[in-house]
C-alpha cells in the first residue's frame, strides 16, 4: 500500500482563543490535483504552513508521502515545493541565484542547481530577468518567480497558496498551463484559491474548509450536482400566482414575465417530471432552460450553512 501525498488526521492548531485548525481530517492521493476552498480564516494557510514547517501543530498528525511533517521533517520538506501567497523571497541576490540556493538546500549540486534554475525561469517565462533582484520585478513577474522557486527542486507535491491572486487573465492562464503540465507529469498539486472557477476548471477534487475543519470533499461536478439548480420554464399563458408543484426536489417556485422560475436539486432529473405536472395542470410549456448551480453557489451554501449551524449550536 502506498502512502498518500498528504494525510492529516485530527489536526489541531490554536492561536489563543482562535481555533485555526479544529480536528481537520484530509487525504490527498498521489498525482491528484486537489483544491482547498474556504472563506478567509478557514484555516487553509495554517494547514499548508503546518505541512511545510512554518506552524507547529497543537495536536493530531500530518504526513507527506508517509513522512511525519515534524518527526521526519527533512524527508517531508524535500518532497514539497511551496508557492506561498505572500512574497517571501531573498532580496539580496539576483533571482537566478535565489533559485540556485533553493535547489542547493535540497542537496542539488551547483551545476545541476544552475541548470534547474535556468529551466525554471524559462518555464515561467522570466529568463531575461534572471540577473534582476526580486524587488525590481513587476507584480506578475513576482508571481511567476514564486512558482519557479517552487518548481526548482522538482517536487513531488506542489503547494500553491492563491497562486493567481491579483494577476491578469493572460498570466492566470499561463500559470494554469504550467501547473497542469506539472500535474500531467505526475506531480501532486494542492491548490488554495478564492477563484472558484479556477478550482472548477483545474481540480480533480476539492475540499471546502470552514472554521478550521473540512465541510465537504468531492469532485467539483459532484458538488455542483448537490447544489440547487434553476429551471426557467416559458409558459404560453403565465399564471398570476405560483402553482403548487408536487415534484421531488423542488424547493421554490416564482412567477416570471414569461412563465416560472423553479429552483430544484438535480435540475436535469427534475425537469421532465416538472413539465409533465405543468401540462397536467393545463399549462403549455413553450421553453425550458436549466441553469446548473455553480461551484461558487455550492460553496456559499455550504459555508453559510456551517456558520448558521455553528451560531445555532452556540
Amino acid at each position: 500500500m502506498t502512502a498518500p501525498a498528504i494525510r492529516a488526521r485530527n489536526l489541531r492548531k490554536n492561536y489563543g482563543d482562535v481555533q485555526a485548525l479544529d480536528g481537520l481530517d484530509l487525504t490527498v492521493e498521489r498525482g491528484e490535483f486537489f483544491g482547498l476552498l474556504g472563506p478567509n480564516g478557514a484555516g487553509k494557510t495554517t494547514f499548508i504552513n503546518t505541512l511545510v514547517g512554518l506552524v507547529h501543530k497543537d495536536g493530531g498528525d500530518a504526513e507527506v508521502f508517509g513522512f511525519d511533517v515534524e518527526a521526519d521533517y527533512r524527508e517531508a520538506r524535500d518532497r514539497i515545493g511551496l508557492a506561498p501567497q505572500e512574497f517571501n523571497v531573498d532580496r539580496f541576490f539576483p533571482i537566478i541565484e535565489v533559485l540556485e540556493h533553493k535547489a542547493g538546500y535540497h542537496g542539488i549540486g551547483s551545476k545541476e542547481a544552475r541548470r534547474r534554475a535556468e529551466d525554471a525561469l524559462k518555464t515561467v517565462g522570466i529568463w531575461d530577468k534572471r540577473d534582476t533582484r526580486f524587488d525590481w520585478l513587476s507584480g506578475g513577474m513576482k508571481r511567476r518567480f514564486v512558482l519557479a522557486r517552487a518548481l526548482v527542486s522538482n517536487p513531488d507535491l506542489l503547494i500553491l497558496d492563491e497562486p493567481t491572486a491579483g494577476v491578469d487573465v493572460q498570466l492566470r492562464h499561463d500559470l494554469w498551463d504550467i501547473i497542469n503540465r506539472m500535474n500531467d507529469a505526475g506531480t501532486t498539486i494542492l491548490l488554495t484559491t478564492h477563484y472558484i472557477e479556477e478550482a472548477e476548471r483545474l481540480c480533480d477534487r476539492v475540499a471546502i474548509m470552514d472554521s478550521g475543519s473540512k465541510v465537504e470533499v468531492a469532485a467539483p461536478d459532484d458538488l455542483m450536482a448537490r447544489g440547487t439548480d434553476t429551471i426557467d420554464l416559458g409558459l404560453a399563458d403565465p399564471p398570476r400566482t405560483a402553482p403548487r408543484l408536487d415534484v421531488d426536489g423542488v424547493t421554490d417556485v416564482t412567477v416570471t414575465d414569461d412563465g416560472l422560475s423553479v429552483t430544484a436539486a438535480g435540475g436535469s432529473q427534475t425537469a421532465p417530471e416538472l413539465v409533465r405536472v405543468l401540462e397536467r395542470q393545463g399549462h403549455h410549456v413553450t421553453s425550458l432552460d436549466i441553469r446548473r448551480a455553480s461551484l461558487e453557489e455550492v460553496f456559499v451554501d455550504l459555508t453559510r450553512d456551517d456558520r448558521e449551524y455553528a451560531e445555532v449550536s452556540a
Partner: peptide
C-alpha cells in the same frame, strides 16, 4: 522580510 522561510521550509 520572511525570506528565512526559504531556509525553514527546506530539508536542511
Amino acid at each position: 522580510n520572511e525570506y528565512i522561510h526559504e531556509v525553514l521550509t527546506s530539508p536542511l
